[in-house]
Amino acid sequence: MERPRVLVTEPIDPAGVAGFQEYAEVKLAFDADRAELLNIVGDYDALVVRVKHKIDREVIDRGARLKVIAMNGIGLNHIDVNYAKEKGIAVLNVPDASNDSVAELTIGLMLNLARRINPAFASVREGQWNKHAFIGHELKGKTLGIIALGKIGSRVAHIAQAIGMDVIAFDPFLTPQAVAALKVELVSLPDLLGRADVVSIHAPLTKDTYHLLGAEELAQMKEGAFLVNAGRGGIVDEEALYAAVASGHLGGFAGDVMETEPPGKNKLFGLPNVVVTPHIGGNTHEAQRRIGLRLAEEIKKIIVPGAR
């Protein structure tokens, strides 16, 4: 009997590849453009993607034998999930495998802003050693406002509390009773923006969260507050964000996501108190290994008869 076939369009941890190879023929098509993807996808039972390709109706229709589309990560915004399911194709992601990695990066971005690490290193690289030019802030004793207290937001809250921060959160889907064990106060969004020294975003991008923070909301933030976005690009209006940071109203912005990725040239990047990483929240060896192994396990249940 012919072995199932798995098409992988972007790099995945070797543990995942090895897991696929135990039960399937695997093609690693990391260099494939859209035209090649459309040309070859019909020969595979499983398609493993990340964010390079938009998996729309055209791709799904070409996948004549597809049984599953798997996201090597969390977000599914670039996959037409409903249409895939209409065609009888399962859609998988691994939402929990990178929680710790994203939470730790979030704290790193906060520390970077608070201690002005990037501009300090830039000055050292230029031959300077001016320790008096880079007076920063402690996070201990400051108030962290978390937008969306899911698994990642909760982990950020736990680490922040260990540092000595007070944590408040806005999450319309949770009750105070549901978060009592976290020792986090649930508040309204305006209250959070007005009280927090650091605001950290961990919400998904939906029609309700698109530009959730625009000019009006950013103006409600405390003078000198920091904004961190490790959730999804598009939740913050970047034009309004530029104005708020450039004017000095906000003390700085750090993000791992942008509304358009890759963002190309963006005037935000010219501001000294802005730090942006290229969507690397889940990019740790530990998280990528967990993701690869989980995908291999879940895909096997779908494309190998009797594997369940």
Rank of each mutant, 00 (worst) to 15 (best):
residue 265 K to M: 10
residue 122 A to F: 03
residue 250 L to P: 03
residue 204 P to I: 12
residue 295 L to S: 09
residue 115 R to A: 03
residue 98 S to Y: 02
residue 70 A to S: 14
residue 188 S to T: 14
residue 17 V to D: 04
residue 186 L to P: 00
residue 36 E to S: 10
residue 53 H to P: 06
residue 13 D to C: 09
residue 165 M to C: 08
residue 51 V to Q: 13
residue 81 V to Y: 03
residue 274 V to L: 08
residue 97 A to N: 06
residue 183 K to Y: 09
residue 49 V to I: 15
residue 200 S to I: 11
residue 280 I to S: 04
residue 203 A to F: 10
residue 293 L to D: 11
residue 163 I to P: 04
residue 51 V to E: 14
residue 250 L to F: 00
residue 217 E to D: 01
residue 171 D to A: 12
residue 205 L to M: 13
residue 148 A to W: 01
residue 305 P to E: 01
residue 37 L to F: 04
residue 253 F to E: 08
residue 290 R to H: 01
residue 151 K to V: 08
residue 307 A to C: 07
residue 27 K to W: 15
residue 292 G to Q: 07
residue 135 I to V: 13
residue 302 I to D: 11
residue 81 V to K: 00
residue 212 L to G: 07
residue 221 M to E: 11
residue 138 E to Y: 11
residue 225 A to G: 00
residue 161 Q to F: 03
residue 21 Q to C: 05
residue 240 A to K: 02
residue 21 Q to E: 15
residue 296 A to N: 00
residue 169 A to H: 04
residue 258 M to L: 14
residue 43 D to Y: 08
residue 64 A to S: 15
residue 228 V to C: 05
residue 234 G to I: 05
residue 224 G to E: 07
residue 58 E to C: 08
residue 231 G to Y: 00
residue 5 R to V: 04
residue 275 V to I: 13
residue 281 G to L: 10
residue 271 L to S: 05
residue 49 V to C: 11
residue 81 V to L: 02
residue 32 A to I: 04
residue 75 G to I: 03
residue 284 T to Q: 08
residue 131 K to I: 13
residue 293 L to S: 10
residue 200 S to W: 12
residue 220 Q to W: 00
residue 226 F to W: 10
residue 180 A to I: 03
residue 179 V to M: 01
residue 239 E to Y: 09
residue 211 H to D: 10
residue 53 H to W: 08
residue 67 K to M: 11
residue 122 A to K: 14
residue 255 G to C: 11
residue 270 G to T: 07
residue 142 K to D: 04
residue 99 N to I: 13
residue 301 K to A: 14
residue 246 A to G: 00
residue 211 H to Y: 11
residue 89 I to V: 13
residue 39 N to A: 14
residue 262 P to T: 09
residue 125 R to P: 03
residue 200 S to V: 11
residue 160 A to Q: 05
residue 208 D to C: 04
residue 75 G to V: 02
residue 5 R to W: 06
residue 113 L to R: 03
residue 179 V to E: 01
residue 208 D to W: 11
residue 160 A to D: 01
residue 278 P to L: 11
residue 96 D to C: 07
residue 261 E to H: 11
residue 3 R to S: 12
residue 103 A to Y: 01
residue 270 G to Y: 04
residue 299 I to R: 07
residue 76 L to I: 01
residue 242 Y to N: 09
residue 179 V to R: 02
residue 71 M to Y: 06
residue 287 A to C: 06
residue 98 S to N: 15
residue 158 H to N: 07
residue 159 I to G: 03
residue 124 V to W: 09
residue 272 P to H: 04
residue 34 R to W: 06
residue 79 I to Y: 01
residue 222 K to D: 08
residue 105 L to N: 04
residue 30 F to D: 07
residue 140 K to H: 14
residue 163 I to Y: 04
residue 42 G to N: 05
residue 43 D to H: 11
residue 84 A to C: 01
residue 245 V to L: 10
residue 37 L to G: 06
residue 137 H to K: 14
residue 291 I to L: 12
residue 252 G to E: 02
residue 254 A to H: 09
residue 230 A to R: 11
residue 16 G to T: 05
residue 179 V to K: 03
residue 271 L to K: 01
residue 114 A to G: 12
residue 54 K to R: 15
residue 233 G to P: 03
residue 234 G to M: 08
residue 298 E to I: 06
residue 13 D to H: 15
residue 177 Q to K: 15
residue 243 A to D: 09
residue 248 G to T: 06
residue 151 K to R: 15
residue 179 V to Y: 06
residue 279 H to C: 12
residue 105 L to T: 02
residue 191 D to C: 07
residue 41 V to E: 01
residue 81 V to F: 02
residue 213 L to C: 13
